[in-house]
Simulated assay, not measured.
Amino acid sequence: MQERILPAGHLHRAFTANNTGESLLALGRHAEALAAFTAAESIARAAPTPDHELLGLVLAGKGAALQALQRPDEARAALLDARATAARGPGGAEALAELDARLVALARASVGDGAKKNRPRR
C-alpha cells in the first residue's frame, strides 16, 4: 500500500523499513532484518535533506543485525558510522552513549571469542 501512496525514495519509506528491521530483529530473523535496514539506509542516505537521527537509528539497527549474524567487523563499521552520524544530529549525547555501550559490548564479545579460539585443547 505504501508503494502506491509514497513515491520511491520518500523518507517515510526509510522509517517503515527501519521499523520492519527492528521488528524482525526482535523476532530473531536477523538476515531479513539486515535486508530491511540496508533498504532503509539507502533511502535515508539518498534523501535531499539528511535526517541524521533516522540514519543513526538505521545504522545502529544494521550493526545489531550484523552482530547477531556473527559478522563483528561489519557490525563495528556500522556502529562507528552510526556514532559519527549521531554526533551530527539532535539529541546526540544520549545516542552517543548508547552506541558507545554497544561498541564496548561488541569489543568484549570479540575478545572473548578470541580467547576461546586460542585456548589450548585438553
Rank of each mutant, 00 (worst) to 15 (best):
I5P: 04
P7W: 04
A8Y: 05
A8F: 04
G9E: 05
H10T: 10
H10D: 09
L11G: 10
T16E: 07
T16C: 11
A17S: 13
T20S: 12
T20G: 09
L25G: 11
A31H: 01
E32C: 07
E32D: 13
A33E: 01
A33G: 06
A35Q: 12
F37C: 03
E41H: 08
E41A: 06
I43D: 05
R45I: 02
A46G: 12
P48K: 15
D51F: 13
D51C: 09
H52E: 08
H52Q: 04
H52W: 07
G56Y: 12
V58A: 01
A60T: 14
A60P: 00
K62F: 13
K62W: 10
L66G: 00
Q67V: 06
A68Y: 01
D73C: 02
A77Y: 04
D81K: 15
T85I: 04
R88P: 09
G89L: 07
G91C: 08
G92K: 13
A93I: 03
E94P: 15
A95Y: 05
A97D: 02
E98Q: 14
L99S: 08
A101H: 03
R102H: 05
V104D: 08
L106H: 02
A109Y: 03
A109F: 00
S110V: 01
G112A: 11
G114H: 07
K116I: 00
P120Y: 07
R122E: 08
